[in-house]
Amino acid sequence: MKDKNDRGYWGEPASEYWELVFPLCEEYNIKFVPIDWFELDVWNNFDPFDVYNDKEKKTLMEIDDQWFEKQMSTHSHGAIPFNSKMFDEVTKKKYEWLNSINYRTYNFRWNVRNQIMVERVRNTYKSNPGKRILCLVGADHNYFFHHELRNDQVELKYPLR
């Protein structure tokens, strides 16, 4: 937020933040609280396919592409694309598959990352009692967030309508 020319790394945060979210926050004086957790110094040490030989890696990457296509095929299952129970079901299965091929990387890149992000959401709503918050995450994270936050003492509106 301090350096408008610093657009993050690897497309994070997504262009929507720069084009929509940050300008909206500035215009309406909305507090922006980053929740994502992504430590570049160790991230690549946890590539899920690195423990496989080149042939296996190629096959696994093709399967990963197939999972992405399955996710994309759910675009019309809700009022907002990729914001539906169908997308979440396919996505959860995708990450179960990633868990089955490499638990170590799945745990680090998915469970640990998501749990840190969820706790940051909890810290945000606890430090802003009675306020509405909008939590923006990539669609893959939706099912995890919904599962973790659904029993909290907050009014959770998901999927969006």
Rank of each mutant, 00 (worst) to 15 (best):
F22W: 11
K92N: 11
R122L: 11
P81N: 14
N44Y: 10
V90T: 06
L156A: 12
I133G: 07
N111I: 15
Y143R: 10
L160N: 11
Y17F: 12
F144M: 08
E62F: 15
R120N: 12
P129F: 08
L134T: 14
W67C: 08
F38K: 05
D65Y: 09
F108V: 00
W97V: 13
E39N: 10
Y95G: 00
A14G: 11
R113I: 07
E62A: 12
F108N: 09
E89M: 10
Y9H: 04
M117R: 13
S73R: 03
I35S: 10
K57D: 08
E119R: 11
E96N: 09
K126H: 09
T105N: 14
Y17W: 09
F68T: 15
L134I: 12
S15Q: 04
Q115F: 05
L98G: 02
L60N: 00
L160I: 10
Y17T: 03
Y9T: 10
R7F: 01
L98V: 14
D65T: 09
V90G: 12
D54W: 00
V112K: 15
N111A: 15
L98T: 14
V90A: 05
L134D: 15
C135N: 02
I35T: 05
I101R: 11
E56C: 01
N128R: 05
K157L: 12
V154P: 14
N123E: 14
L24H: 08
Y95K: 06
Y95P: 03
E148K: 13
Y158A: 07
E26M: 01
E148N: 09
R109I: 01
N45E: 10
I30W: 09
I80N: 11
D152I: 13
M86K: 12
N44D: 07
